[in-house]
Computed example of a mutant assay.
Amino acid sequence: MKKLFLLALVTLGLVTATSLPVSGNTTTKTPNTTTTATTTDPSYVWTKVLSRNTAVAYHAKSKSAVYLWNATHTKRVHNLKNYPNTTWYVKNSVVMQHGNKSHVYYEVYNYGNAADGFIWRGYLTKGVNPSQRALAAKGVIKLSSERSLQFFQDNLTTLASLPQSQFQKLVTDQVAAKLTKSVSDTKLDAMAKILATQDISTRDAAVKAGVTNPKTTNFTVKQVDPKTMTGYYSYWAKYRTTNALHYYAAVVASHVSGLTGNSVNGHYGLYIVPDTTAKTWKPQITIVTD
């Protein structure tokens, strides 16, 4: 029988801004779907997330129609042409890959937090909007504890809204980086995927993957809901970070560490099981150890 551990995963949305634009392998061309369609091919894949410690002011380079998008780049949420006098503050930076090209997108919000979304950084220029009449506009906003916590929670929600494959890649890469003393095993990974996608026994999966004497543990992530989340606040209070991805990885890594501590060689395999039936997906994570 497989053991189920309920893990409360969290709300997320991303976070604060820093004084420098994020570097990345970006192209100089404008992402061509940004101004041509209301919805696009959902093939913008998050490959990197960078949190920020301050909110830095930017504004649109021109008064042309450019758009803020949702996190998956499938829906326009705001047209900057309708905000000619607005200063936008950067919450996070995300590297999105589209085909074989990568672009840095900023998650931005206006000062009143009435509008936010993701935009290719090439459409923005750093600084307070010259047309803004509000004298209180600042080039850099130091985050209060309340705003930092809110960004962290928003960050959690945003991450949970990503396609499962993207969520899995982001989390597992972070987990692998944390578990420097443990060794990921491709055979165990293969076995985890077999268990996750086929209704067969642990023994049969082990034979098929060529693994000897494996142990498996499954735990599911609860629906993202502030009322049921556990652990996220104490984590934030300790680290004061807006990087929710690190929180997810820390929780998963703690489970892996507990299991590999009693394993033979400390090898592990990790796989997030797709759940395409639920309206709000609740991934089951399978851990395999030797």
Results as ranks from 00 to 15, higher is better:
Asn92Trp: 08
Ile194Asn: 00
Ala192Thr: 09
Ala71Trp: 12
Thr16Leu: 13
Asn70Val: 04
Gly210Pro: 05
Tyr271Thr: 01
Lys227Ser: 13
Val104Met: 03
Thr217Gly: 05
Ser182Lys: 07
Leu270Met: 07
Ala160Val: 06
Arg76His: 04
Val175Gly: 01
Tyr268Gly: 07
Gly117Leu: 02
Thr36Pro: 05
Asp116Lys: 03
Thr241Lys: 03
Leu195Tyr: 01
Lys222Pro: 01
Val264Glu: 11
Thr202Phe: 07
Val273Trp: 08
Ile200Tyr: 01
Asn243Trp: 12
Asp154Lys: 13
Pro283Ser: 06
His73Lys: 08
Thr212Gln: 14
Ser23Gly: 04
His98Leu: 11
Asp204Phe: 01
Asp185Asn: 15
Tyr44Val: 01
Lys101Ile: 03
Thr86Arg: 03
Val95Ile: 11
Leu135Asp: 06
Leu188Trp: 08
Val49Ser: 04
Val22Ser: 08
Gly99Val: 06
Val273Tyr: 10
Pro42Asp: 13
Arg52Tyr: 10
Ser257Glu: 14
Arg133Val: 09
Leu159Glu: 07
Trp281Ser: 14
Ala237Pro: 00
Thr30Ile: 15
Phe167Arg: 10
Ser263Leu: 14
Val273Thr: 12
Lys178Val: 03
Thr54Tyr: 13
Arg203Cys: 00
Thr72Tyr: 04
Val207Glu: 11
Tyr111Glu: 10
Leu162Ala: 01
Ser234Thr: 12
Thr54Ser: 13
Asn70Trp: 08
Thr228Glu: 14
Gly24Ala: 08
Lys63Glu: 09
Val49Trp: 13
Met96His: 02
Trp236Lys: 04
Ala244Ile: 09
Phe118Cys: 04
Ala37Asn: 09
Leu135Val: 07
Asp199Asn: 04
Tyr232Arg: 02
Val90Ala: 12
His267Leu: 07
Pro130Thr: 04
Thr30Asp: 15
Ser182Trp: 05
Asp290Tyr: 06
Val183Arg: 09
Ala134Trp: 13
Val256Ser: 03
Gln284Thr: 12
Phe219Val: 05
Asn70Gln: 04
Lys238Arg: 15
Gln166Ala: 07
Thr277Val: 10
Leu195Trp: 03
Leu195Glu: 05
Ala249Lys: 00
Asn92Ser: 15
Tyr123Thr: 00
Thr216Ile: 15
Gln168His: 04
Ala17Leu: 14
Ala57Ile: 06
Ala196Lys: 00
Asn79Gln: 06
Gln223Ser: 08
Tyr239Val: 01
Asn213Arg: 12
Ser182Cys: 05
Thr286Val: 15
Lys181Cys: 03
Asp185Gly: 02
Ser184Arg: 14
Ala205Asp: 01
Ser263Cys: 11
Pro214Ile: 07
Leu135Gln: 10
Gln174Ala: 14
Val45Glu: 15
Lys48Phe: 02
Thr72Glu: 14
Thr172Glu: 15
Thr260Arg: 11
Leu179His: 02
Gln198Trp: 02
Val104Gly: 01
Lys48Asn: 03
Tyr235Gly: 00
Thr289Val: 15
Arg121Ala: 03
Arg133Cys: 02
Ile194Leu: 11
